[in-house]
Amino acid sequence: MAFWRRPGFQRRWDTFKRGWYKFSKNPVSVVGLFFVVAVSFLAVFAPFVAPYPEHAGRFVNFSEASQPPSLQHPFGTDVFGRDILSRVFFGFRYSLMMGVVVLVLVVPPGVVLGLVAGYWRGTWIDMVIMRVTDVFLAVPPLILALAVCSVLTPSVFNAMMAVSLMWWPWYARLVYGLASSLRNEFFVQAAEVAGASRPHILFREILPNCVSSIFTKMSLDMGWVILIGSALSFVGLGAQPPTPDLGTMVADGAKYLPDQWWIAIFPALAIMITVLGFNLIGDGFRDLFALEEV
């Protein structure tokens, strides 16, 4: 990093405070941030905060089976007598992991392809990249994931791979649109006239101006990916029992509706809170990156 990027603690602190001010102007995104932080905390520290950590896996205690919510088991117990609250905490782990892994696999290639195609808009490079993108966009991710998981063994790993394969084109599209208009901005032309290299123009001039949109989309996609993962588990093609996956838990509990409602309802609410949290954060990201004039 160039020397003026070493701004010292004060400058960094100021930047943080200003960022928080902009982010927190929208109370909704603060609520979202709260959900996400809470869910992440519970996921990371699940073994320590869950009241019955051993209930996460293969555990059976029929004497306490299907108990309604009580002080001992705030979310009740399932048919095997496992504490649902503890299983929900562990369930957050699988949901978040699903989202994070998919985004890590999906965002870098999508962004790079979008940048390249956008910068060389109108050339054969653009043609090739964007037509391939269009083909992938035409396949619904959930259906492909279903297909992959039913042909191969159903597992969380296969589900993530299938979803990733179908998800990168959205980033390519998004960045393509931004880059192809940014490439005509005068600051890009100024860099070209100065003789800057192509990687410099792509990654130092154009990419920083796309970051805001990419982050906003990522936070919305976290929600989507978690939903898809849960849906796969729900139909039995994702995580397999006794993995404490939220989708699997809802699927299991659905059999006992409406009498033992707590077995399905609480994991379902947990999915909702997680997805909602990420969706609400999106707007905050947009405000955070907005430039204000003096």
Binding site: A2, F187, V188, Q189, A191, R204, P208
Partner: peptide, 12 residues
Amino acid sequence: GTSLNPRRTIGQ
């Protein structure tokens, strides 16, 4: 306003 990249510092 448009010829200077808004995401880079004057130094850069």
